[in-house]
Computed example of a mutant assay.
Amino acid sequence: MAMAMDTAPAEPVEIICGDGVVLGGHLWPAGGGRRTGTVIINAATGVLARYYHRYARFLGEHGFDAITYDYRGIGLSRPNDLKHCGYRWSEWGTRDFEAVLGFARQRRPDGPLFVVGHSIGGFLPGLAGNAACIDRMLTVGAQYAYWPDYARSHRLQLLWRWHVLMPLLTAIYGYFPGRRLGWLEDLPGGIALEWSFRRRRVEDSHPRKEREEVLARFAAVSAPILAVTASDDEFGTVPAIRRALAYYSSSATTAVRLLPQDYDLAEIGHFSLFHDRHRAGFWRDTLAWLQDGVNPWPHRRFETMG
């Protein structure tokens, strides 16, 4: 593994999508003049990109150019009028991630290109039309929020919050007021409702004429995928991880289920692995995959086919 090195401060970037929407983000340059590749960090639903800034800086310290960005409707990419923006969840993949991927490839045409995707951020790459250029992916708790896959012990609570209250509040306000509730960030109405009414098959949320194209885009991705989840992740259960990975039919997939005691913790959950308390543990372990394509947790592997 590369030794840690100094890295330059983050540079604000603006990335223009094909439909003219401008995304706000940051570029974290590789330190020390050595570049191992570019890593795009895809956030979870309703989570600001700044939550991943410390991990992005860590990657910069270890020779990667790292890119963080907010999806349309969120944070630096939030429009003035959230109620009437008309954004759809699938556009985070078909337009936003596609544009960021193009930005990264244009900036470094010949270098390796990696993706770290948290939660829905590990599923979105398959919706982009240019994702065949990805060299390797690391996903963390990646799934698409099909409620029967939630952990049994949390299922009723999550069902009530995200599939009953969220669409109800969205109907009342015209958008989902997550920030005032302390439930992640505000979301455009179309994105909140697509989450609330997610079907068993993601393509069924698209018009019938688009469904074959959705599946073809996933099949075009050939990057090896290491899918990580935690044993106490209420969203990223084994069935949820398997369901999401099944769409990447052309990729070699490896899935691991970490235990809190692997890092001397009482719990991990869905969100904590990008907190900087994991710098010397989980973060350092991820370098084995990003730098060399080696699974650092072979003893935690589970079959990706149920």
Score class of each variant (00 low, 15 high):
83 K>Q: 14
93 G>S: 06
95 R>N: 08
192 A>I: 04
15 I>T: 07
200 R>P: 09
288 A>D: 14
178 G>D: 04
100 V>I: 13
194 E>Y: 04
51 Y>L: 10
295 N>A: 06
281 G>R: 09
7 T>M: 02
258 L>M: 05
229 T>I: 05
237 T>F: 02
208 R>T: 13
62 H>W: 09
66 A>W: 06
171 A>M: 12
202 V>D: 01
59 L>H: 13
298 P>M: 11
225 I>V: 15
96 D>L: 11
206 H>A: 03
198 R>G: 00
140 V>C: 11
280 A>R: 10
300 R>I: 14
175 Y>R: 07
21 V>F: 01
228 V>D: 03
14 E>S: 14
99 A>Y: 10
23 L>W: 08
73 G>V: 11
157 Q>I: 15
217 R>Y: 13
213 E>H: 06
117 G>V: 14
126 G>T: 13
279 R>W: 10
202 V>K: 01
279 R>Q: 12
253 T>R: 08
138 L>P: 14
121 G>Y: 03
265 L>F: 05
143 Q>W: 07
132 A>N: 11
117 G>A: 08
277 R>G: 15
93 G>T: 11
132 A>R: 11
61 E>D: 03
215 L>T: 14
189 G>P: 10
98 E>S: 13
216 A>R: 03
191 I>Y: 00
104 A>H: 02
230 A>M: 04
87 Y>N: 04
74 I>W: 00
291 Q>M: 06
49 A>H: 04
18 G>C: 01
219 A>L: 10
38 T>E: 01
45 T>E: 00
212 E>R: 02
111 G>K: 04
147 W>L: 04
168 L>Y: 13
232 D>K: 02
153 S>A: 12
263 Y>F: 15
194 E>F: 08
286 T>C: 06
190 G>C: 08
139 T>H: 09
105 R>P: 12
256 V>H: 10
130 N>F: 08
193 L>C: 13
19 D>W: 04
107 R>D: 03
91 E>H: 08
213 E>V: 14
201 R>T: 14
201 R>D: 13
249 S>N: 04
68 T>K: 00
37 G>V: 09
169 L>W: 14
44 A>G: 05
226 L>T: 12
189 G>E: 09
271 F>T: 08
305 M>P: 00
102 G>V: 05
141 G>T: 09
205 S>L: 09
163 H>M: 01
16 I>D: 05
21 V>G: 01
60 G>M: 02
210 E>P: 12
224 P>W: 08
90 S>M: 07
167 P>I: 15
275 H>A: 15
250 S>D: 11
147 W>R: 13
278 H>W: 14
172 I>M: 13
209 K>D: 10
138 L>A: 06
169 L>Y: 11
151 A>M: 03
269 G>P: 11
38 T>H: 01
150 Y>S: 00
82 L>N: 05
57 R>W: 04
276 D>H: 12
247 Y>K: 08
